[in-house]
Design a protein around this nucleic acid. Sequence first.
DNA 1: GCCACTCTAGACAGACCGGTCTGGTAAAGT
DNA 2: ACTTTACCAGACCGGTCTGTCTAGAGTGGC
Lengths: 194, 194
Amino acid sequence: MPAKIADRASARERLLAAAGELFYEEGVHSVGIDRVIERAGVAKATLYHAFGSKDELIRAYLQARHAATRERMMRELAARYRTPRERLVGVFEVQGLSFAQPGFRGCAFISASAEARPGSTVEEVADEYRSWVRSLFLDLAREAGATDPERLARQLVLLYDGAGISAWMDRDPTAAAAAGTVAQGLVDAATDPS
Amino acid sequence: MPAKIADRASARERLLAAAGELFYEEGVHSVGIDRVIERAGVAKATLYHAFGSKDELIRAYLQARHAATRERMMRELAARYRTPRERLVGVFEVQGLSFAQPGFRGCAFISASAEARPGSTVEEVADEYRSWVRSLFLDLAREAGATDPERLARQLVLLYDGAGISAWMDRDPTAAAAAGTVAQGLVDAATDPS
DNA sequence: GCCACTCTAGACAGACCGGTCTGGTAAAGT
DNA sequence: ACTTTACCAGACCGGTCTGTCTAGAGTGGC
C-alpha cells in the first residue's frame, strides 16, 4: 500500500509539515530526526534523500516559515488597510493575530538562532528574514512619505521585535497592540508635515 | 597538590565562571558537562556534589547573570544620572555599553528560553529576570511622576527588548541608542504636564 | 594518629544523537 | 514483462549526552 501517487508528491511535504510542528514547538535542537520521521510517517532514508542532512531540513523549515509569514502579512495588509500609513501601523495588528493563535511560541528565527554558531545555516536564513522585516517597514515608510524612512523603519523594527519578545516571554498577546500605539505616534511624527 | 584552601572555596565558583562563559557563548544546550568541568579544572563528581544536576547549574548560571546585570545597571544608573527621568532614558545608554562589549551574544535569558519547555527551570529564572526589567522601568516611571507609569514602563520594555534583539540578530550595537531616542520621546510625553 | 571532608581521575551505564546501509515493496514508464 | 524510481522498515555505527560509581589523595580538626 505504500508509494501511492498522492504519497509520492507529499513525502517531502509531510516531512516539512512534521518538522514545522515539532521544530517550532520544541526547538530545532531538542527534536531529533527520529521524531520527525515518525510524525511524518516516512523512512529515514527518504528524509536524507530529500534534504541531505538535518541542517538542510532546518533551513527548509525556516524558509517555509519565512514564506508563510511573509505571505500572510502581505495578504492581511492588502485586505485590511489602504494607505501606507495605515499599513505601517497595521503590521502590528497582523502581528497581534499570530500572538493570539494557540500554540504561539515566539519568533521561530529568534529561537532557532539562540544556539546557532556564527556562520551557520540558521544564521543565514535568519538574516534573510531580518532583511525582509526591515524592508517591509522601510518600503512602507517610503511610500508613506516619511521624512526619514530609514529612521522610522528602524524604530518600528525595534517595536516589532519588542512585541514579539513580550508576547512570548511574558505570555502577553496584547504586546502587539501596545507596540502599535507607540508605532502610531512615531508614524504620525515622521509623516506629519507640521 | 589538589584540594588547597583556595581551591576548596573556589571549586563552585570556578564551575560557575566556566559555565558562565561556555553557556553564554555557545548555549546551555550545546555545551556538555564535560566541557564545563574541563574548563573549570574540576572533577565531574564535584560538579554534581555542588549543583546536583545540569539543570541546577543552568539555574545558578542564569541567577548569577541576573545579579550581575542588575548590579551593573543600578551602579551605572546611580553614577551617571540624577533624576528618574534621566535614568529612564539612561537605561538604554547602559544597555548600549553591554552591546559594545566584545563577545556580546544577545540576552542570555532569551537564548536560554529558546528551547525551554513550559514550567522548566529556565522559564522560572527567566520570569524573575523579566519581572526585574519591568519593575526597573516601572519604579523609575513612578518616581518620574509619569501620568501612567504602567503604560510608560510597558512601552519602554518593548524598546529595551527590541534593542536587545536588534543588537544581537542584526549585529548592531547602536540599536540601544536608537531605542533611547524613542524612549526619550515617550518619557517626555508621559511626564510633560502639557 | 585518625576521622571527616573535599577533592581528582576516570571508568561506566543507559539513553539518544545524526547518518548510513540493506532489503523489500509497490507503482510508473516502456 | 521488465526496469526504474520512490518509498518503507529497521538494523546498525560511532559518537555524545547526563549522571553514577569506585578508588585514591590531600587537608583540617580533634
